[in-house]
Design a binder for these strands. Sequence first.
DNA 1: ACTCCATAGGTAGGAAACCTACTTATGGCG
DNA 2: CGCCATAAGTAGGTTTCCTACCTATGGAGT
Lengths: 115, 115
Amino acid sequence: MKAEAQALKGHLDVLLLAALEQGPRHGYAVKEALREGSGGRFDLPTGTVYPALHRLEAAGLITGSWSVADGRRRRSYALTPAGRRRLSSDRDGWRAFAGAVTALLEGPSSWPATT
Amino acid sequence: MKAEAQALKGHLDVLLLAALEQGPRHGYAVKEALREGSGGRFDLPTGTVYPALHRLEAAGLITGSWSVADGRRRRSYALTPAGRRRLSSDRDGWRAFAGAVTALLEGPSSWPATT
DNA sequence: ACTCCATAGGTAGGAAACCTACTTATGGCG
DNA sequence: CGCCATAAGTAGGTTTCCTACCTATGGAGT
């Protein structure tokens, strides 16, 4: 499958946090939510998603808990208060970043003269 | 100096190519154009900019040539045809990427239900 | 005269992020 | 019985970017 798995480049964390904003999900569900929510564009390998979730948990931004459903063990993640604050500031950061890049890419007048 | 030097993460190349779109610049001028054009947001260290330009040159996307101005040696870079093509496709890539991320961050309805 | 800063180019080494490839395990469908 | 989707993970490598250095010139300030 994997439509365009290549490059979230540092913006994965904010997407993972956003995936948990409306409520907890287990790891695999986070991965699927990202794939479905992006129309297949962000179809990440498990080798990207699971380590990233561990990173966020180690950073105290999400908390994980084990459960069992249909005989399969699941680790459900939920945002911590720090995670919500991080999500909020990362959203602001994304707007600023995306705005700056878009301005430079779409508006040639953003650049100083070549002389 | 260096306002928020941290994270262009993979989007640096397209910005460097865009900096050369209107005409050639030397390395230091590319760095300054990026800083000024972004309102100080993308104030990259030379240890980021120069290796990136070397990378783009090695990839055949830009060509460099030495010159001397005011007793200082300069390496001027210009887009190659391949560089222009890459800039064009990277612009499309950026639009798609930024659009997808923004949709997921700003529109909670983009996400599948948490249940 | 001397020092400092902006300009101009560069490298070495490390940290972080992401991907590839692999492993383990269960439940259901053909 | 085999295969696929679900579910979780690790190991190792590549790339990208940053920190911290080095060299050199010209001009401004003291």
